[in-house]
Every structure is written in C-alpha cells, then in structure tokens.
Simulated scan of single mutants.
Amino acid sequence: MDIGLQREYGEAFRRLAAFEELLRKAATIGGRASALAYDGLTKGALLPPSSTSALSGKSESQEAREQ
C-alpha cells in the first residue's frame, strides 16, 4: 500500500475513533440527565407532564399561556 493511501486510512481511523469517543460522551451525558430526571421526579422537584400536554408535546406552561 502506498504512503498516500496509508495516510487516508490513518485519517479515516482517527475520525472514526473521534466519533466513537463523542458517542461515549453523549451516552454518559444522557445517562446522567436521565438519572437527574428520575431523582427530580422522585423528590418532587420535577412534575410529570399532564396527559394533555404529553399528547400535544407542549409544556404545562405553554398550555396555560394558550388558555
């Protein structure tokens, strides 16, 4: 394999490794956010959405402003 092609492969592998690291970081952040949401619901710091807002995709404050 000539040196130019080796460099292209090297760059492709570096980019793939960087992408994999970003995915790991995103999974870690997502797991932490999920754990905080569970804690918030459990401790009463967060309220579950009403069934109306859950179906519409709007927050309770958006629903209240529209009424």
Rank of each mutant, 00 (worst) to 15 (best):
T52E: 14
A12M: 01
P49T: 07
A27T: 06
A33R: 08
G10R: 00
L46R: 13
L47H: 08
A37T: 02
G31I: 14
R15D: 12
A17N: 12
Y9G: 09
L46F: 12
G30C: 03
L41D: 03
L36A: 11
F19S: 10
S53P: 08
T42V: 10
K25S: 12
A33E: 07
A33D: 07
A37V: 05
L22K: 07
S51E: 14
G44T: 04
L46K: 12
S50F: 02
K25H: 13
A35I: 02
S51G: 05
L46V: 11
G31L: 09
A12P: 00
T28D: 02
R14D: 09
R14G: 08
F19N: 04
T42E: 01
T52N: 12
R15H: 10
A27G: 06
L41C: 11
G31P: 01
F19E: 10
A35M: 06
S53N: 09
L16K: 15
F19W: 08
A17Y: 03
S51V: 14
A18K: 08
A18M: 06
S34Q: 06
I29Q: 05
G40D: 11
S53H: 08
G10V: 02
F13Y: 14
A26H: 13
I29M: 07
A12I: 07
S51A: 11
E21C: 10
F13K: 15
A26Q: 13
P49D: 11
R32M: 01
R15N: 11
A17S: 14
A35Y: 01
G44L: 02
A45Y: 04
A12E: 00
R14V: 15
A33Y: 07
K43A: 09
K25V: 12
G10T: 04
F19Y: 08
T52L: 15
L46G: 03
Y38G: 00
R15G: 14
G10Y: 07
G30Q: 07
T52Y: 15
A26W: 02
Y38H: 04
A37H: 03
S50V: 04
G31N: 13
G10N: 06
G44H: 04
A12T: 00
